[in-house]
């Protein structure tokens, strides 16, 4: 098992290495380079030279890279050009908000997606199945930012039940107030992810329900309920685990957009603001943190999969 985890980690190394080079190179690919970014376009040559030396930009590029990488690994992404605060501190302030949004959205997605998938897979081709498949198509097809706007129109503008701009209130401090601010963004994101979840899980369930071993189980005299619970669910959820990685991608992307719709003070919104103010250290920091979260989740999922499936030998 340990060997398997190590092997998966080793496979990640080249990917992360190339990705880090890409993120590092971003700042150099921008017209004007790092100096132009920091000083603006009207700087004189003396200022430029001083800064180049201060930042060590006159050293070989490889040295600069490893220097940067070394700092990044320890969590030092530099200082925001805009607020002059350490990037890691800014991220630390915003991350809890995004994690809270993600947690509640996941809950909604699972509570919505799994029953929908089950109900439609158990009656393939029925009106219920058609209706629920239509629902998942809608959940997937309606852009989160439009759904968010519609929700704001209804609940904030028309009914005035909920705030149109969401603040971050930690759930454990004031659960009710937190939910008032969280429910619309979490629902927007959760509905979208539930669509992904329902569609894949339904496909997985339908194919497992048609498998030979289900016929064998029936020939043993097992009830349909037991066959689904004991035999089908395990087999259907297994390939589904691999889909979680894909779901995470839509999740992170969805979070960036959702936070923008509800002006929710999370990591994604900070990234967008950083892009519009061309705050490159902050952009780099946000992307690296999201990348690490995404990769870590995918790795966990892979290892979990190998652990649960007896057919995979991790020797």
């Amino acid at each position: 098992m340990t060997a398997y985890v190590l092997r998966r980690l080793a496979q990640l190394v080249p990917v992360l290495f190339i990705a880090s080079i890409g993120i590092f190179a971003m700042i150099y690919a921008v017209p004007g380079g790092p100096v132009g970014i920091m000083l603006g376009e009207n700087a004189n040559q003396a200022e430029i030279d001083a800064l180049v030396h201060d930042l060590g930009l006159d050293r070989p590029i490889a040295i600069q890279y490893f220097d940067w990488l070394g700092s990044a690994v320890t969590g030092d992404f530099g200082v925001s050009l805009h607020s002059r605060e350490p990037v890691i501190k800014l991220i630390g302030e915003r991350l809890p908000a995004t994690l809270q949004l993600a947690a509640v959205a996941t809950l909604i997605a699972v509570l919505l997606g799994i029953p929908v998938a089950l109900a439609s897979a158990l009656h393939p081709g029925s009106w219920l199945d058609r209706m629920l498949s239509g629902w998942s198509a809608l959940a997937l097809g309606v852009p989160t930012f439009w759904l968010g706007i519609l929700l704001i129109l209804l609940f904030a503008v028309e009914l005035r039940w909920l705030p149109s701009a969401s603040r971050y209130v930690p759930l454990w401090e004031d659960p009710l107030e937190a939910l008032r601010h969280l429910i619309m963004p979490a629902a927007t994101l959760g509905v979208y992810v539930s669509g992904v979840l329902a569609r894949f899980l339904r496909a997985s369930l339908v194919s497992q329900l048609g498998a030979d071993y289900v016929r064998t189980a029936r020939s043993k005299g097992l009830s349909r309920g037991r066959i689904v619970r004991v035999h089908v669910m395990r087999n259907a959820l297994l390939p589904f685990i691999t889909v979680i990685g894909l779901m995470m991608a839509t999740f992170i992307g969805g979070a960036v957009v959702t936070e923008a719709v509800f002006t929710y003070p999370g990591l994604g919104r900070m990234l967008i603001q950083a892009i519009s103010t061309r705050d490159y250290p902050l952009i780099q920091g946000c992307i690296i943190v999201m990348l690490v979260i995404y990769v870590a989740i995918n790795l966990t999922v892979d290892v979990l999969y190998a652990y649960v499936d007896p057919r995979i030998e991790y020797s």
């Binding site: 990705a19 971003m26 992307g253 960036v256 990234l271 892009i275 999201m290």
Partner: peptide
């Protein structure tokens, strides 16, 4: 390794 939208954002940032 990056969700599509992050990748696109990074490219546009550049």
């Amino acid at each position: 390794a990056l969700p599509a939208i992050l990748f696109a954002l990074a490219l546009i940032a550049v």
